[in-house]
């Protein structure tokens, strides 16, 4: 690390950049929290919690708008170059990803009202938990790298994205089987399918953020072969096949 001291003549510029990273971190914290709470609202049919998650989404929306305003004003006033420009453009991209993560969390929370208690003991719930654990680990690791800037850790992100896709595909198959077994399962299982898809998308946004962070720090694209897509589009379950 070239220990450049606060090299901007206007130290307010450094403060602005710092406040930008702090805002991103706070957004990240909110998004992580929302996803976590949304799933527990769904699993425990906790409608009050679901309402809280839905209301919290406004915080992320607001934060993203603030970051937009701040970055636009920084670009016009400071005309940033090189790593400063990457930092600012990166913040715009990360905040957009985090805002989407919040939306997906909100969408999961909304489904708690419909799903309710109808899926006691279904093993799909454990699958969803495993999926959300992976997605949250992904998000946490990526945001931790945003703090530490040790981009070599981002390599593990690819492994985990593959695992997320694999669990998603497996859950998809399992839910189809439940629907086949009993038509009364169709409503809750369809909602769970959307929840699983949402969580899988959260993992994708985390991967996007990883790529952005790598770009911010190194100025290069993250050299990872993007993981294979999930394979749910080729999954079929034959009626009356033994489960």
């Amino acid at each position: 690390m070239t220990a450049v001291l606060s090299h901007h003549i206007v130290s307010a510029y450094d403060d602005e950049l710092k406040s930008l990273t702090l805002r991103i971190a706070a957004m990240g914290g909110h998004a992580e929290r929302m996803v976590d709470l949304a799933l527990s609202a769904l699993i425990h049919a906790d409608l009050a919690l679901a309402r809280k998650v839905i209301a919290d989404d406004a915080i992320l929306d607001e934060a993203q708008r603030e970051i937009d305003t701040q970055t636009i004003s920084m670009i016009t006033r400071r005309q940033p170059l090189a790593d400063d420009l990457r930092e600012i453009v990166g913040a715009i991209r990360i905040s957009a990803d985090l805002e989407r993560v919040g939306d997906l969390g909100k969408n999961i929370a909304k489904r708690a009202f419909v799903v309710g208690h109808s899926l006691d003991r279904m093993s799909a719930i454990r699958g969803l938990e495993a999926l959300v654990d992976l997605a949250l680990t992904q998000l946490k690791d990526v945001l931790d790298v945003y703090a530490s800037r040790s981009v070599e850790r981002l390599v593990a992100v690819r492994d985990r994205d593959e695992q997320i896709d694999a669990i998603y595909t497996s859950l998809f198959r399992e839910l189809l089987t439940y629907m086949m077994e009993d038509p009364r399962n169709i409503t809750p299982c369809t909602h769970l399918l959307f929840c699983a898809k949402n969580i899988e998308r959260i993992g994708d946004h985390a991967t996007n953020i990883a790529e952005t962070i790598y770009y911010i720090v190194t100025g290069e694209q993250l050299p990872l072969n993007r993981p294979k897509e999930d394979r749910s589009h080729v999954v079929t379950v034959e009626p009356h096949s033994p489960a």
Partner: peptide, 20 residues
């Protein structure tokens, strides 16, 4: 917590609303 070496910004590492 792993990554809390000197130089790391705390609010970036501990992101929950309460810690912020």
């Amino acid at each position: 917590f792993g990554d809390v070496d000197p130089g790391i910004s705390l609010p970036l590492k501990f992101r929950t609303p309460e810690m912020q």
